[in-house]
């Protein structure tokens, strides 16, 4: 079958999709967007978390056909997504999530300042993960970033228990979560300063 949907603001068309394929498989293997990860493929680990019409979901549990006509944000589009949100006044203005108009303006950044990608414009949560040392192997990172960004979108100053609850669907095996908490606190604090 053919599936038409929007990924990070860009209309996408996936052909020859087998009915049993997941959204995760289509993103990774058909659209060249392997940022969403495949740690368990059974909805337990959260490494494949994406926003589907604004809602965080495990893309491994979404059948590809279910996303027909809908909007997906993946880690590859998170920086631009977050920037758009900031520029449109954040949640208070009712601009949460990606409207089709916003999404359509998204473009992949073709060049980077260096091979490490340093100098690339990141979302606050992405920068905080780097600064706080929340990234080790990094396999859980894309899913955690999507989930943490969504938390900060609806709760700008979460308590530690709020952070733990919001991220409890995302497994990490390397860090012991302490520096992930640090990263979310840091992003929240920076977001607070910027307001």
């Amino acid at each position: 079958m053919r599936v038409n949907f929007t990924v990070n603001g860009r209309p996408q068309e996936a052909d020859d999709v087998w009915e049993g394929e997941s959204l995760l498989y289509v993103l990774r293997e058909r659209l060249g967007l392997p940022g969403s990860k495949n740690a368990c493929e059974q909805g337990e680990c959260g490494s494949c978390t994406v926003r589907l019409d604004g809602v965080p979901v495990c893309s491994c549990l979404v059948a590809a056909g279910q996303v027909e006509g809908r909007e997906v944000v993946t880690v590859e589009g998170l920086a631009e997504f977050a920037k758009d949100r900031t520029e449109h006044g954040g949640c208070a203005s009712g601009a949460c999530g990606t409207t089709l108009d916003q999404a359509k303006r998204w473009e992949a950044k073709p060049t980077q300042d260096s091979q490490t990608g340093e100098g690339v414009e990141l979302s606050p949560i992405q920068q905080a993960f780097i600064d706080a040392g929340a990234v080790q192997c990094g396999f859980c990172t894309p899913g955690l970033l999507i989930a943490a960004d969504e938390l900060l979108e609806r709760n700008g100053s979460p308590s530690d228990q709020d952070i733990r609850e919001a991220l409890s669907g995302n497994l990490c095996r390397c860090t012991g979560y302490e520096k992930i908490l640090d990263a979310v606190r840091l992003a929240a604090a920076r977001q607070g300063e910027a307001v």
């Binding site: 293997e29 392997p34 495949n38 690339v120 990141l122 040392g133 990234v135 990094g138 894309p142």
Partner: peptide, 23 residues
């Protein structure tokens, strides 16, 4: 020094290629 990871940016943007991402 607590220098940050050279692969950190690639890992938070989803561009870092894991073995399962090879294509």
């Amino acid at each position: 020094e607590s220098t940050l990871r050279p692969d950190g940016t690639l890992k938070v943007t989803g561009e870092f290629a894991y073995s399962s991402d090879m294509w």
